[in-house]
Design a protein around this nucleic acid. Structure first.
Length: 112
DNA sequence: ATTATGACGGTTC
DNA sequence: AGAACCGCCATAA
């Protein structure tokens, strides 16, 4: 067993994701940074495979864009968690995307 | 060991 | 603002 801190990369990623409180979001790169790595993509891979058991919607891309191919599934979650959202259709009819998370206000880091 | 891929990030055109 | 390109890291074949 060597050492208890010898957890796999996956376990660490899931641990950080679960440490994110409701209403807050963290970027893939942010999670990877906490692990001491820049494997933002690897984090995404873990989410795609094991993220089914964690609040994957609390993990967004840089800028606040939700995971590709899962925006529709993440939206209701954000509304439930009351995550600061920036609706495309509020005053400016921007057709960029359905919505985006206000990362500037919802950004969270395990290190307070 | 080498190659290819991916819920990414940032820069450049 | 949108698309393309490269870089970075972990896993699968």
């Amino acid at each position: 067993m060597t050492t208890p801190e010898h957890d796999d990369f996956v376990s660490r990623v899931l641990g950080v994701v679960e440490s994110i409180p409701a209403g807050r979001v963290m970027t893939y790169g942010g999670v990877a940074a906490e692990l001491g790595s820049r494997a933002a993509r690897a984090v995404g891979q873990v989410m795609a495979r094991y993220g089914s058991d964690v609040a994957w919607w609390r993990v967004v891309r840089s800028g606040g864009h939700p995971p590709i191919g899962h925006e529709a599934q993440a939206l209701p979650h954000y509304e439930t968690e009351r995550t600061p959202l920036i609706r495309a259709v509020q005053e400016r009819a921007t057709t960029d995307a359905a919505y985006r998370v206000d990362y500037a206000a919802a950004r969270w880091s395990p290190r307070t």
